[in-house]
Design a protein around this nucleic acid. Structure first.
Lengths: 251, 251
DNA sequence: TATTGACATTAACGTTACGTAATAGTTTAA
DNA sequence: TTAAACTATTACGTAACGTTAATGTCAATA
């Protein structure tokens, strides 16, 4: 049986270009060149190509494949063993990489949470300041500072388990929010569940929960573009939706 | 603090070429170019380089690093998560590769063993034939055939455990042989231990052991270049050494 | 002061295993 | 006869630099 490039290519599941390339680097040459200049491959070449592709599947570089195929069995074996050693090393490196990336992701998530925490603190301060302008000052101020202090301590002293719980809760909240926004009704059961989760979530940061603060913070999500951006990523229109839902929730 | 290319390169543990390349692709440009045309880097660039190298460590391609660094936290996070997904996929592929290569190595080892087995069978036949020429024929012939038959069955029906034991034994034999050849004395304790191991090894293939056959097969190692080659790989002069050692062993 | 050695610069090729044109000739089917 | 479907060679592009090569600049020494 004789094959031209594309016939053999189709037979072996590679591109004609690949066969020409293998010819070019001397890895697989055709039996002969026909009078019109076409490459003609025979059965021997088919077999060799199978072998080549076999080693290629194993990730052996082409020049090594060439050496392996011309070598005897024994050399082929040690070549493969070398290759295996390389693969094992690569796997170890990959494991390290993965572990590092995962760690980094965790850290980044933590950072975002911390960033949010700072924003909340800022919000708390603002709320307190507003209160102060409305009412007297010292008592409220002192109360505000303590709140912030306690919030600090709360987040910083979070145990691993608590942190994990917060992560889980965040995920659940985001998913619920997304689904609720898709439905579109801030008064829906799902939306109210999201509010409930959001309240729980806030309580990870806040020592003391109040309806007013809850309403205030969700309003801030709408007003402050840095917050809006965060929530827009969860779902379009999410900040506004959450504010409206919380308004109902806190009635 | 200002740095020239090689200063920064040394500080960060990369090559000057790398820094020029990063400049070329716009990933990290120097603060300014001094009058003599030298690249001058400042603290900001040092920080950015640290970040770049951090992501590079994680295997993120340079163009993606560029995007990640200009993006906000959140984008950086999702970029990393994407990257992680890619890594996990690569790990799976790598696992498959490794499994396949290991399987192939096992198969190749088996093949070599099988090849040897055929050679042994050939030897057995020859031995039997010689015997036949010397003695009568039918009984011996039948006996020989049965031996071969049983040898076939024995190897083909080898259990995984037996196969593993054979592998272990082969390794031990080869190592002992190598050490013994290095010492140089076929009568040494180590050489005789190698003979003992070789006997055990033969018994994996042979149903029935005889001193004459043992001497004969090691003589064949010397005479048949295909065998010699195999043993030469273990140590130079190994075939002759083994024959001499077995001659002493079988006295 | 002239020279030397250690720096700097840009330009350009090499690395892997092909994919993807571009250009040109050949075979085959309609 | 013509067009489709093949063939060929040549050459650029890919990622992230390493490695010359040719040339220019700076600081220190003979």
């Amino acid at each position: 049986m004789e094959y031209t490039v594309s016939k053999l290519a189709e037979l072996a599941g590679v591109s004609p270009r690949t066969l020409r390339y293998y010819d070019e680097i001397g890895l697989l040459s055709p039996t002969r060149i026909s009078s019109n200049g076409y490459r003609i491959y025979g059965q021997k070449e088919v077999d060799r190509l199978q072998q080549i592709l076999f080693y290629r599947e194993l990730g052996v570089p082409l020049d090594e494949i060439g050496r392996v195929l011309t070598a005897k069995n024994f050399d082929g074996l040690s070549a493969l063993q070398n290759h295996l050693a390389g693969l094992l090393e690569r796997r170890e490196q990959l494991e390290l990489l993965i572990a590092n990336v995962e760690k980094t992701i965790k850290a980044m998530k933590g950072e975002i949470i911390m960033t949010d925490k700072e924003k909340f603190e800022g919000f708390l301060k603002k709320m307190v300041d507003d209160n102060e302008r409305q009412y007297g000052e010292e008592i409220r101020k002192k109360y505000g500072e303590e709140t912030v202090k306690r919030s600090n301590a709360k987040v910083l002293n979070m145990s691993k388990e608590q942190y994990a719980a917060l992560e889980k809760l965040t995920k659940e909240l985001n998913e619920t929010l997304k689904k609720a926004v898709d439905k579109g009704d801030p008064g829906s059961e799902l939306a109210q569940k999201a509010c409930e989760l959001h309240k729980k979530w806030l309580c990870f940061y806040w020592d003391k929960y109040s309806k007013e603060a809850h309403i205030g913070v969700t309003q801030m999500y709408v007003d402050d573009p840095r917050f809006s951006e965060y929530y827009e990523r969860i779902a379009p229109g999410c900040a506004v939706f959450l504010r409206d839902a919380v308004a109902i929730y806190c009635q």
